[in-house]
Amino acid sequence: MGEVIVITSGKGGVGKTTTTANVGTGLAKLDKKVVLIDTDIGLRNLDVVMGLENRIVYNLVDVIEGTCKIKQALIKDKRYPNLYLLPAAQTRDKSAVRPEEMKQLCEQLKTEFDYIIIDCPAGIEQGFENAVAGADRALVVTTPEVSAVRDADRIIGLLEAHNMKKMDLIVNRLRIEMVRTGDMMSSDDVVEILAVNLIGIVPDDGSIIVATNNGEPLVGNESKAGQAYMNICRRITGEEVPFLDLNVKKGFFSRLFGRK
């Protein structure tokens, strides 16, 4: 039986879709059978981030409405043998899907896949309700900014109200230099405020933008962000992986001698 993981944040623009693309691709690289579902109906983007936008025939709403079979709507990512995408509809809105229908879809996909990764839309309305309905666990993405952390706290409260069994936090776009100079909250600060288990810290990294430009998730490559995402994937599978040395407020001597 597979596991359904929803990637959510409350606030828009903190990196949910990028996280979904990289976590999904990373798990596929770890030989897991993975399907990504874009539930942002009307504002679909996971397809372009994945570089699969030219291959869409059917979408999530087609599956829900019975216009096609699930298998017909799944886009196989040719770069990885075990990775599939179920894109959102672009010309409909969130009311085209109901939470109960998402739950059923997730149950069906669980028999076929190891991981079902759901990209949740921003906000706390119906799109959120749809995205979390069938999920077994949640990854909450935030950035070290007051607005994103506040919204993450709200989302965590709502996930608790939904009896979400497991919640983990990803602190995205951390700028190590700014943390060192005291002008950005550290991941420790964010974890202390939100009181949720930390599963990953992703540094702010220009190579993410390049990867998105190319439609090729960078998980697993040599960049800091690529390594961070792969570590998150390993932790999702239950492996214990030490955190990258990004966030440490270094002492004087290690700052003198430890830097390249």
Partner: peptide
């Protein structure tokens, strides 16, 4: 970077951010 880190550590705005979020979350929660 070394010098910035050394001198600016305490004057940063991160502490202020933490305090402000903690305050706003009190009434949110």
């Amino acid at each position: 970077a070394l010098r910035d880190g050394f001198f600016k550590k305490k004057s940063g705005s991160a502490n202020k951010a933490v305090d402000r979020i903690k305050f706003v979350l009190q009434s949110d929660r």
